[in-house]
Design a protein around this nucleic acid. Structure first.
Length: 544
RNA sequence: GCGCCCGUAGCUCAACUGGAUAGAGCAACGCCCUUCUAAGGCGUAGGUUACAGGUUCGACUCCUGUCGGGCGUACCA
């Protein structure tokens, strides 16, 4: 049982002395100031109103009725307006340190999503060009949220959804055809709104190499489109792999048509009276759900809008038995979400099982000015280019360090000169330092089996230990909120606490028993750093 | 016009569910390498949390309004 759960339990027991109509929720928080103890509860303040008494008096009554294990809690104090502050006993802290070492690579895992099957759908870019830094935030966020779910016990599947049948891909095929003809010196007309990127020429070139003039009189853009899709997908897969992202499945929108799911979706909605025909188009009565206008599902041309397959796709996900389906997408797609929810709800699925992680746009800054990206116009910086410059670790870190809900400013110049001022190195450096020390300890010492951890008495040692203990809760919060940046904030705190310890306390050259105790402490820190960086998909180097 | 998101130190951003004295990094200034990695440390400076009200014992956090920015509001994806 976690310490916080223990505190909730003992406070709950003490509260039985009051005649409360309903059981209050007992909150335990981490005080910002060390003088305020290791854990704190505001319960007395929240009870002031129902009990019609002042908070400090209530706090006193709660503390008087509190029965606690002195092996866990060394002191309980009332402070400020009525906070009850707890201090952890050293015995508890040392037991926990042993626990971290024993649990090792598993330390930080929890069971809040135990037994749940979760599908995380992300990236989902149509194969019209290489992945850009614009896609990077989606890719890294989705993968890391998936990792967080895994750390909280879920069985996770990562899925990439794409559509190679739409207009985008036709234009892509036409663009390749034009470049192909151009290469062979034939007449060609570059399509309006075509893809202008250099990679189109590369694809055309490889077609010309393989097929010569065979395709000059091709009936349509199909062979060009297929070649483009193949090459671009190979490129995207390579980029994902470089970023340590491994998809479990690729889902093509087309299969929804082939299975008749699109038709089925419409018919089911029609049977419920939520779909009607007008002006040659098929409409979804979204006004029923409070929207201002109804929404077109099938255009008068007979082509569905993207909302229809979106609804059918989510129904398909739920048919596959997932307990939770999480979509990751940028703020520009937020408008589709209510339609999808209303759609699946109307099809009698539980909308609670669909959740979305929305992130704000990445603003690219180039030469000190904002820079609009467009795949079509070939204004972009690819993820591969970025990784060539700064590597995969920095790339992942960069996209994860900020809350998904805030605009992320990406300054290309700054990223390139990232070098030593990049914050990811601070974390890796702490790990490398510990590794180096551990190698030396290994060479120079031979320890007995028993360790006396109670030799760890320096404030920096205790502070470091306490910081490590927050790790499991941090992971739990990050998973619950789908916000990986909390892990980074924690790791920064941990690395900083270690660095303070490193400067205050030596390991090598002290009394042998102390060397041993501090070695155990350092091993634990390295372990927690590895676990945390592992969740972020960032390496923990042994030397730098 | 309407809807969603955002506005915190010079810059980029934190602040868990409403908690106690709003924190980091970068930039600036001053120190610290014969000692386990200086990709580091210590110190100084920097704030009316956009603005105005409200709710609360307590507001960066919740509510209302104003201003500023982003996105959406298609028979585009």
């Amino acid at each position: 049982m976690s310490m916080k759960q223990y505190l909730v339990d003992i406070i709950g027991k003490s509260l039985q002395q009051f005649d409360l109509e309903e059981e209050p929720e007992i909150q335990i928080e981490d005080p910002r100031q060390p003088e305020h103890g290791d854990a704190s509860s505001n319960i007395a303040m929240t009870l002031a109103r129902p009990l019609k008494n002042n908070p400090r008096a209530i706090a006193q009554q709660i503390v008087d009725g509190l029965e606690y294990d002195e092996k866990k809690v060394s002191a309980v104090e009332i402070a400020g307006p009525g906070f009850i502050n707890f201090r952890y006993s050293e015995e508890y802290l040392f037991d926990e340190l042993s626990e971290i070492l024993k649990t090792g690579a598993e330390f930080g895992k929890s069971d809040s999503h135990q037994g749940k099957r979760i599908l995380v759908e992300f990236v989902s870019a149509n194969p019209t060009g290489p992945l850009t830094v614009g896609h990077g935030r989606n890719a890294v966020l989705g993968d890391t949220v998936a990792r967080l779910f895994e750390w909280t016990g879920a069985d996770v599947e990562r899925e990439y959804y794409f559509n190679d049948a739409g207009r985008q891909m036709r234009v892509l095929g036409e663009s390749v055809r034009a470049r192909y003809l151009e290469l062979l010196g034939k007449d060609s007309e570059f399509p309006e709104g075509g893809y202008e990127g250099e990679y189109i020429r590369d694809i055309a070139q490889s077609l010309a190499d393989d097929k010569g003039e065979e395709l000059v009189d091709a009936e349509d853009e199909k062979p060009f489109k297929e070649k483009a899709e193949e090459e671009i997908f190979a490129d995207i897969s390579g980029t994902l792999e470089r970023m340590k992202i491994k998809m479990d499945s690729f889902f093509n929108e087309r299969s929804l048509y082939e299975d008749g799911k699109i038709e089925e979706t419409i018919e089911k909605l029609r049977a419920k009276g939520l779909v009607y025909d007008e002006d040659g188009a098929v409409w979804f009565k979204t006004t029923e759900f409070g929207k201002e206008k109804d929404t077109v599902l099938v255009k008068s041309s007979g082509e569905p809008t993207y909302r229809l397959p979106d609804i059918a796709y989510h129904a398909n996900k739920l048919d596959r038995g997932f307990d939770l389906c999480v979509d990751v997408f940028g703020a520009d797609h937020i408008a589709t979400y209510p339609d999808v929810l209303n759609g699946i709800k109307s099809l009698d699925y539980d909308p609670e099982k669909v959740d979305v992680v929305v992130y704000q746009f990445v603003t690219l800054v180039k030469d000190g000015k904002p820079f609009k990206m467009s795949t079509r116009k070939a204004n972009f910086v690819t993820l591969d280019e970025l990784m060539d410059e700064v590597g995969a670790d920095v790339t992942r870190f960069f996209f994860l360090m900020r809350s998904p809900n805030t605009h992320l400013e990406f300054d290309i110049g700054q990223a390139k000169e990232a070098g030593e001022k990049n914050p990811v190195f601070y974390l890796q450096y702490a790990h490398a330092r510990i590794s180096s020390i551990l190698r030396k300890v290994e060479e120079e010492y031979d320890f007995p089996e028993d360790v006396d951890l109670s030799l760890l008495t320096h404030p920096s040692e205790i502070a470091l230990l306490k910081t490590m203990l927050k790790f499991p809760e941090t992971i739990g919060n990050a998973a619950r909120l789908r916000e990986p940046h909390h892990v980074i904030t924690f790791l920064n705190e941990l690395a900083s606490a270690f660095t303070t310890f490193y400067h205050d306390c030596r390991i090598l050259g002290e009394e042998k028993e102390l060397v041993q105790a501090r070695t155990e402490l350092a091993k634990a820190v390295a372990q927690v750093l590895r676990n945390g960086l592992g969740i972020l998909g960032i390496t923990a180097p042994e030397q730098m």
